[in-house]
Nucleic acid binder design. Structure first.
Lengths: 126, 126
DNA sequence: CCGGATCCAATCCGATACTG
DNA sequence: CAGTATCGGATTGGATCCGG
């Protein structure tokens, strides 16, 4: 394959890294996908995302809210009800994210094979 | 904005997370971009990527090699010479990555403003 | 129900020193 | 030159208890 030159403005790395670490947080992608089809309550998210602790879910939601990807709505009933949903920005990011996702799924076997070959030729030190 | 439904196969989250953590490692993106225009030696990479330690650069290169994104070529001169370059897979991933990057740069101000607004309405506990 | 506060184990990562 | 080995500080993340 011919080299494909990256056409990026200077300083792009930092931007991309910033975005990747935001959206690539262990649980962030699950939250985004979970909210992609509509708003959900805190407890709904926690149930639908396996193995996430309240602490991590809270932190993930805070970060995504802080960066403008999701909105948080408190209904002051007793007990409290809190709903989260994607903002416009949150919906927008689904586009490039979906592209990356589809590419990843498309190439999953290539990566899996590369990994296996590497591991076989680089045995653990016993 | 109308909700944009994510069109992803089941189990996609794990795939995407896997990809994001591979490529979203703190230094991986710098390596990939650094190699996007041609092969580079270990020391060239280390010089061009500010503040990366040998340990981290080595680890990053190992991971990318393991997953098939880069190749490692050893020339047994004295002293040794090691060249890294993107594989076909590595060049391919630049496409969705560039899309994400451009989106991130395009929306940088939105995110920055959201962050600032959030921080102002959520003051630190003094 | 939502989430903050605290404690603790595991992991990450930089600095340093050493090797082929 | 291109790593590996080791140590120690910093960060992460789960578990638990508490409060609005």
């Amino acid at each position: 394959m011919k080299p494909r030159y990256l056409n990026l403005p200077p300083g792009a790395c930092v931007e991309v890294l910033d975005m990747l670490s935001r959206v690539g947080d262990k649980w962030a992608i699950f939250v985004i996908v979970g909210l992609s089809e509509g708003s959900q309550r805190f407890s709904e998210l926690q149930r639908s995302i396996e193995n996430v602790s309240k602490k991590m879910l809270t932190a993930t939601l805070r970060n995504l809210e802080r960066d403008g990807f999701i909105s948080r709505t408190v209904t002051p009933t007793v007990p409290v009800r809190v709903d989260y949903e994607l903002t416009t920005l949150g919906h927008e990011v689904l586009v490039p994210l979906e592209a990356l996702a589809n590419w990843a799924i498309d190439r999953r076997d290539v990566v899996r094979n590369a990994r296996q070959a590497f591991d076989e030729s680089h045995p653990a030190v016993a």
